[in-house]
Design a protein around this nucleic acid. Structure first.
Lengths: 362, 362
DNA sequence: TCCCGAAGTTCGATTTAAATG
DNA sequence: GCATTTAAATCGAACTTCGGG
């Protein structure tokens, strides 16, 4: 039982500290904030005030403080789907960077619902966040919704895609380079009959990854078999990527296509591919290699562990937070800041799902 | 480029709305808050005020508001490890419930660092959260740290374990029933030589799950082979559970133990088990069945998909948020509230990693 | 007394200007 | 003028009280 039967506990205010220490509220404020004027206060005074504050367990009221400082010390962190394993390392990166600063994150998860995102954005504005980090792992976002941000001068950074906006920074992986690295690796292993699963048409990642694949193929003088190039359907649910990868490969198998490797759009679809292959008794990597993209948690937990193109997600989150913090500081000092576009370098992570091609794949 | 070159934009205040509409700030306040006195105001007055507010894009200053209302409308959500797939469905549940209320979540991730947790807790208190939800998926938490909460009358709910505290509510799964269901299922399938991987000794979940296993075995008249009962090492890292499961099974295999099924402590260790088995060419489920606990995302993504005992994580999060909201309301109305302990019912999810026992397992 | 509206106080801090010795 | 301290104004909204019709 915890109750409220006793009289409401009046919180300790600065006035209480003043009374306890025998000084005025002004002096207390100056002391506890180490304001410029604190230089003139004798050490004796300051220690007495500090002791009184500690003795009473004084906690400055953040609302009174924010009211005059006009600062919330709040940064909004908006995610489109927390349950997507792609998001959490980014959140971790954001946390690590924010921890060093004085900002606290206000968190929202719109689970792929644009309406919810919009409402949460309004709430963020209402709460006077000083900066905003949006982890747009999946959804298709209308820039207009973000126009308010410009007016209110709220520095914003988007993680995992480039909006091409003039006032919103972004941190994204170099999709083209990543895809190129992935396909190149399969080619090195001797694979020639390769299934390429492209992403949903609406996703901004889809295009550059496909370009990377094409350029790697061209560099090796290989023409990809159009029958082996398939597309994931549009959908906002990461799980659908798994189902899509599974279904596409099942269909190819049904059609009697022969291939020795699959380059999936992302890890989720790669996992789906492995499921489909297992269903037909095709072994990975002995009979067919599989490579993913992202390096989400499950990629290293499944068996065989997935070879993939890794996005430095934690670093991306940390970078985004760093940009926002710097821009907020700029705004406070009445300076202008530039919207930047950070392209992060992906890294090929070789695990167990890839192997040299053998003659006569499935 | 987004800049601050133009003169600082003074935010719109109630006074501006008053001037614009031709009424006093008082009337504006009464109107916009639908205060009791609004009954007496002519509709004409109210619409004019509302129009003026909308025209100016007026957003009430939350700090001024909180200062007088003494309410932050903030709920703290503290997680011990966001990257743990176990956490995110819980967060989703919390979000769904909080969305209906007027509370915004302040979020922290202490990534298994008690010191960080403590500092974040202080920050929560500084920020005047009205309630607290702690997702203690893993770490061993000292109740003393939470003593402040009692003093400050901040309703708190712990998700995923019972602290046995008199003032902190908790929402946890019925571990004993879950483990019983899991082992019973293996027994039904005809398994008798079963490896049981117990959790780390320090985890509160370990004990009840082991009890559940024992009671199921007893009910079936089976004596578990002590040589097949092994323990995960203590560690705060979820990944270590995977490594632990893998290593333990490898050791058993090395020792030449024979078994036809493995009941893992959780999904992570089950995934590790599958890795170990695959390494020795043992097929799941043909040669050996594997069952996990939790039903985290990767459980259904890996191949074969993992049979497991499911915790209703989203529901648990939603329940916790509901409790906190109700308790906050009670505190506001000067009523007492009880710390409750909610035991959620787990559910056996049968997938591909289990099959009937065959004579002469590995 | 009922209706409508506004002046003034309060919340808890910061900050400026000024008052002490 | 200098070191030390403080009264008073301010931030923006909510609420209590009060005045005229």
């Amino acid at each position: 039982m915890a109750s409220g039967s006793q009289q409401t506990v009046r919180p300790i205010t600065m006035r209480d500290v003043a009374r306890e220490s025998g000084f005025s509220p002004t002096t207390v404020s100056i002391t506890l904030n180490d304001a410029p004027l604190a230089r003139y206060l004798p050490a004796e005074t300051k220690t007495r005030i500090r002791q009184a504050a500690k003795k009473l367990g004084y906690r400055p009221n953040p609302f009174a403080r924010s009211l005059v400082s006009r600062r919330s010390e709040l940064v909004g962190v908006m995610v489109f789907d927390v349950t997507d394993p792609y998001c959490t390392p980014i959140l971790r990166g954001i946390e690590k960077t924010l921890y060093e600063s004085s900002y606290m994150p206000i968190f929202t998860d719109s689970h792929n619902d644009p309406a919810r995102f919009e409402r949460y954005l309004e709430m963020m504005l209402d709460r006077r966040v000083e900066g905003l980090i949006i982890v747009a792992n999946w959804l298709f976002l209308d820039i207009d919704i973000l126009a308010d941000l410009r007016k209110q001068e709220i520095p914003t950074t988007l993680v995992s895609r480039d909006l091409g906006s003039s006032f919103i920074s972004s941190v994204a992986v170099d999709n083209e380079a990543g895809a190129r690295a992935g396909l190149s690796y399969l080619l090195e292993l001797g694979h020639r009959e390769i299934v390429v699963i492209r992403g949903p048409a609406l996703l901004t990642d889809t295009e550059p990854r496909w370009k990377g694949v094409q350029s790697a193929a061209a560099a090796a003088g290989l023409t990809l078999d159009p029958a082996l190039v398939v597309d994931l359907p549009d959908s906002a649910d990461p799980r659908s990527s798994f189902d899509g990868g599974c279904a596409l490969v099942e269909r190819l198998l049904q059609e009697g296509r022969r291939f020795t490797a699959v380059m999936a759009f992302d890890d989720m679809s790669a996992l789906g591919v492995m499921r489909a292959l297992a269903g037909k008794g095709i072994r990975v990597p002995e009979d067919c290699s599989v490579i993913g993209f992202d390096d989400i948690g499950p990629a290293s937990l499944c068996t065989p562990a997935l070879t993939t193109v890794r996005q430095p997600m934690e670093l991306m989150g940390a970078t985004a937070a760093g940009i926002v913090i710097a821009d907020v500081a700029a705004v406070r000092e009445r300076q202008s800041y530039q919207a930047v576009v950070q392209k992060m370098t992906p890294e090929l992570v070789v695990r167990q799902s890839t192997a040299p091609a053998r003659k006569g794949g499935t």
